[in-house]
Design a protein around this nucleic acid. Sequence first.
DNA 1: CGTTAGCACTCGAAGCAGATGAGTGCTAAC
DNA 2: GTTAGCACTCATCTGCTTCGAGTGCTAACG
Lengths: 343, 343
Amino acid sequence: MLTDRQRMILNAIVDDYISSAEPVGSRSISKRGDVGYSPATIRNEMADLEDLGYLEQPHTSAGRIPSHKGYRYYVDHLVPWNSAESAEMGTIRAFFAEKLNAMEQVIQHAALVLSNMTNYTSILLGPEVFHTSLRHFQLLPLDDRTAVAIIVTSTGQVENRTVNIPPEVSVSEMEKVVNLLNSKLVNVPLYKLKTRLYSEIGEEMQRHISHYEELMQVLDTALESDQEQRIYLSGATNMLNQPEFKDVDKVKTILDLLEETPTLLKMMAPELGGTGIQVRIGTENNHVAFANCSLITATYSLDGQALGSIGILGPTRMEYARVMGILGILSRDLTAMLAHWYK
Amino acid sequence: MLTDRQRMILNAIVDDYISSAEPVGSRSISKRGDVGYSPATIRNEMADLEDLGYLEQPHTSAGRIPSHKGYRYYVDHLVPWNSAESAEMGTIRAFFAEKLNAMEQVIQHAALVLSNMTNYTSILLGPEVFHTSLRHFQLLPLDDRTAVAIIVTSTGQVENRTVNIPPEVSVSEMEKVVNLLNSKLVNVPLYKLKTRLYSEIGEEMQRHISHYEELMQVLDTALESDQEQRIYLSGATNMLNQPEFKDVDKVKTILDLLEETPTLLKMMAPELGGTGIQVRIGTENNHVAFANCSLITATYSLDGQALGSIGILGPTRMEYARVMGILGILSRDLTAMLAHWYK
DNA sequence: CGTTAGCACTCGAAGCAGATGAGTGCTAAC
DNA sequence: GTTAGCACTCATCTGCTTCGAGTGCTAACG
């Protein structure tokens, strides 16, 4: 719908604004050289672009800045898509070179690397409990009344929970039960554990075990899956580097939001059909506090099914191209790594 | 060294400044009522206090604000010591009412409660590895090449580490070793584990076990104690509420420092002889960035030996009385809880 | 002699006026 | 279709003034 020249100018404006954070005027676009027109011509086009809603003017005699619609167009049509062989590649690959074992560590480290590379805030969502399964279950007695329930998942995570053991239950009985669980529940997805516990094992347990009720209660709390999905944040204070957040109040509302796990979860939850890289600009994140922020997310997956997501939060004036490139590489590599993990 | 009246006035000034964050003038002190003198008299005393170094003037015709020395005097001699039965007590006790099991959870929760109650930043240092001992050791095989080493400590913490098992070592051998470890190393302090491993068990193992070298290597990484002591931060963004930190740059350096674990460790490390509540004002924290901050810390202990510490970081203009009261109560209760924990 | 009233003085904060200049929109010429 | 020229706008900067909170000093008071 836009002419080539309009696209070119819009592109130049967004680029300029991204790096300068100042409204950009017709003269500075003209001087850049890559748009070979005089300021006047550019002014005309800018006026048109403003009418079409791609640009905004903070006030009459200031330069133009991209509107949300402008950013959207930029992201959808103009981003220089140099995902191929970027300089970033090296850093990311180097990060994978360190041998890291448990999935959790990988994710945590990735968050750090991301925020350092981009100077924005990175948000990583751990592999969903949804798709991980039980690899091993164990009860370690601490004393005669308490024990630690240990759940090892297929991604190598180890979760533990302290449980109270009712006095009536004997150690040998506990052992029997644990063996039963390990033989029957291994490879069952975590979120199905509790239902399977009742449906498949209940009957058998009732036959062999006294104090069925009490034991079930213990197991129930033991298998309580760590509902709060792991979220890893890194570089939250990078927000403070951005000139648009030099107002403490604004930044405070954002940082406060970042401490609320549920909000983050909602934001980061992988879109249903959404594969590839998603960009949500300004109000597209459904939160007023993020009106001046953009969130770029990608998912990593196994067998084509999204397992978790990685994201970068920054100002709407964000280095979309670079960040999208980095996220693309990282999500691909994470996916590859997962596949390898499962052999 | 100060006269009663000077003390009274200093106290009034600090109190006023703590709640208003504005330089306080002679008139406002006089109007408060609790100092029954005219502004002129108070002015004279203020001039003296300034000469003595307890007060400062931001500029000639502004009110006075307490100097570091003034805060120090206030904290040492003037803080209304109402630790007895404060309203805070309820909140803290309520927090302990929830039954919480593992030490780790308790600490984490305490950090949250502290920052919420005070509106400052809370920093908690977990129980030192130094004084916790091994309660149980376990190796869970994941597949034929890897296993999870699980260490349960006397404080109920569960640490886990993934280790690679050399192909030459058989499962039954591993079991033998684990049993040996459990029979010999339980109740040994964590930091002594590795030396004990070599001194006491090495010999015996060499007799019964083939592939001694390889196994030792596995155990060595498995017992590697989680060097980085656990630090729990809460309410870091509360810093942004303080008017003295409305300048983004200042707050950024502080928040950045708070993300550096080593720095925090150094700051929070329990003082050697120091028992009770410690207050470090401004530059007494050895960090320029904390020049405008005060850190109040207390320790919790077992058998008279400090295990960890709890602290509140806020502006030098801080509600010392309240915070010190809260920290006092909480540290006492944590200590009591620990004693109970060990029975 | 300690306390207080009075007063001149200081100095930052707030408000205002004019200058500056980046940037625009429009018109007319190329 | 493009561009040069020009009048116009408006945020920002600067210097100036005013205002007032607060001081220090002196002298008077009980």
